[in-house]
Write a protein that binds this DNA or RNA. Structure first.
Lengths: 102, 102
DNA sequence: GAACTCTATCGACGTTCGTCGATAATCGAT
DNA sequence: ATCGATTATCGACGAACGTCGATAGAGTTC
């Protein structure tokens, strides 16, 4: 968990963000993070194994969606709301609306 | 092109829409359709072959994003804006904003 | 009806994806 | 120092994806 690389949002094309959100598991993660809090990997249970969830989190991070900080043992993560909103204005709020509806 | 099946938007989960938009070619198609007009397959050139484009259009149709009508020889298509907006309020307008920015 | 245009489908191919289990590393608690 | 919890990485596997070229059908035009 050492070298946690977070790409600049300016490097992320829209289709990559869409692709990252195009999976039930990853969308579920994002939905949890939309409350703005910092969450830990172990609190999630979306019916996939631990290594699979870790994999999905990595994809969300590399798509610029999730901020991922190791703290002690745990995998802390949160939405990169401000940066996402600067790059894709209104998109985070839109996600909030859409995921509530589901 | 006979049996053009269009799924009900109520059957489409959000992650499927996201997945459909998670490809450069398909996003480019949608971007063109955002003007609200009816477009024809042959007017697009996104650097992929004809069969590939046809494939992508099918995916967009099956994701509920595109209305696809055969008329004579041609493959006419348009955004299912109203239905999308009913199912995912604000999303079409959001797409308009985001794709203009790119 | 012959030639041409537009499109869908097919089969193929390599690539990416989603998943798992096993392993190892790190940390906290005992 | 040991145990338990949390996580990242690895190797594997089948499934899905993106692409192509070839083919065939349906319309249009001549």
């Amino acid at each position: 968990m050492r070298t946690v690389f977070h790409p600049a949002l300016s490097d992320i094309p829209l289709h990559k963000v869409m692709h990252a959100l195009g999976s039930p598991v990853r969308l579920a993660v994002v939905k949890e993070l939309l409350d703005g809090d910092v969450h830990q990997g172990s609190e999630f249970d979306f019916g996939v194994g631990q290594s699979t969830l870790s994999h999905h989190v990595k994809i969300l991070r590399e798509a610029g969606i999730v901020q991922n900080d190791p703290e002690g043992n745990r995998c802390l993560m949160s939405l990169r709301s401000a940066e996402l909103d600067a790059r894709f204005p209104g998109f985070v709020e839109q996600l909030r609306v859409l995921t509530v509806a589901e």
